[in-house]
Amino acid sequence: MTSLKSGHSEGEESIYMLPKWTNPQIFDLDHSCVIMKDRRVHFLFMRRSVLVNSQRECRNMSEVSKCLLEDFAVELMASVSADTLEMQDLAFGLLRDAYDRDSSVFVVGNGGSASSASHFVCDITKNAKPEHGRGLRATSLTDMSVLTAYANDVSYAEVFSRQLESQARPGDLLVVISASGRSPNIVEAVKTAQALGMRSIGLLGHDGGTVGHQVDVAVLADSADPGIIETVHLGMCHAFTRALRQHTASVPELASV
């Protein structure tokens, strides 16, 4: 399958050859014009059009694997809209402000999102730090001993909020990573952050769930597939790290120890 290309100017038309599909569905985003002719799809690029969701005729396991990988890549692209990118920019603004003010950033998540939380903190504390200067103060609240202590002695719904009460200060930043946006401990963490005078970012999925209406900035991966959502979230974390690295290197008066 030929991948969708970037860099098309407004009004430009491009044609892509597709593999043999059964019941293809074309999603029209940002008012772009999409015309289906035989196995050719004509895209009139006003901003962004994405081809998603196919059921194909695959003859063997090799073709099945290839189809699944291609579908995953296309669905991944479809889950990131212009709104997603706009909110991602706003979220980066909060991270950049936290660095400039020397505030702390706390990151939380459950399951695969807990892994993403730890991964994100590793990246922004190590890879976004200038060679000679201070980095961003960031902590993942996913330490197993602390989590299980609160889960056993208090409740799992409070494993993050209790840690924020002990460590966070007004003006600090909370980043929650959640595919559903409905996990009780994530909801409680955001409530506690609000009570403490913190700002908050949500890397969320689909409609954002309960948390989508609570955080200051909600960045949504528009998909119901947890694998797609988690992949988008990790990609966002890498983008944030790259942008933070550029920012910390560009402000030597702030980066100096």
Rank of each mutant, 00 (worst) to 15 (best):
S140T: 02
N23I: 12
H42V: 14
D222S: 04
T125M: 10
D71G: 08
I26T: 13
K126D: 04
N60R: 05
S54V: 12
L4K: 04
T139S: 13
D153R: 07
F106Q: 07
S103N: 14
R40W: 00
S250E: 14
S54D: 08
H213T: 10
H42A: 09
G109P: 07
H233T: 06
F160M: 11
E86F: 04
C67I: 11
H213A: 15
V211S: 15
L254K: 15
M1Y: 01
S180T: 12
E12V: 13
C122F: 11
D216E: 05
L164P: 05
A189T: 03
E70Q: 12
S178V: 13
E253T: 10
R242K: 14
A221K: 10
D83Q: 14
N110L: 13
T231I: 04
V108N: 01
E253R: 05
V80T: 12
V219Y: 06
R56G: 11
G235D: 07
E131W: 07
S250W: 00
L164F: 12
L90G: 01
Q163P: 11
S49W: 02
M87H: 12
Y16L: 15
N53K: 06
A128L: 13
G111T: 02
V257S: 12
E158Q: 15
C58S: 08
G109V: 05
A73E: 14
M61S: 08
V154Y: 14
G202D: 11
I186C: 04
S155H: 06
M236C: 13
F92P: 09
A138L: 05
V232D: 08
E63W: 03
V80I: 15
I229R: 02
A193T: 04
N127V: 02
S116M: 08
R242Y: 15
C122W: 07
T139E: 13
S104P: 01
A98F: 12
V107Q: 04
D102W: 05
S32C: 15
G235T: 09
M77K: 14
R242M: 15
G11V: 13
I201S: 09
R134L: 05
H8T: 01
N23Q: 14
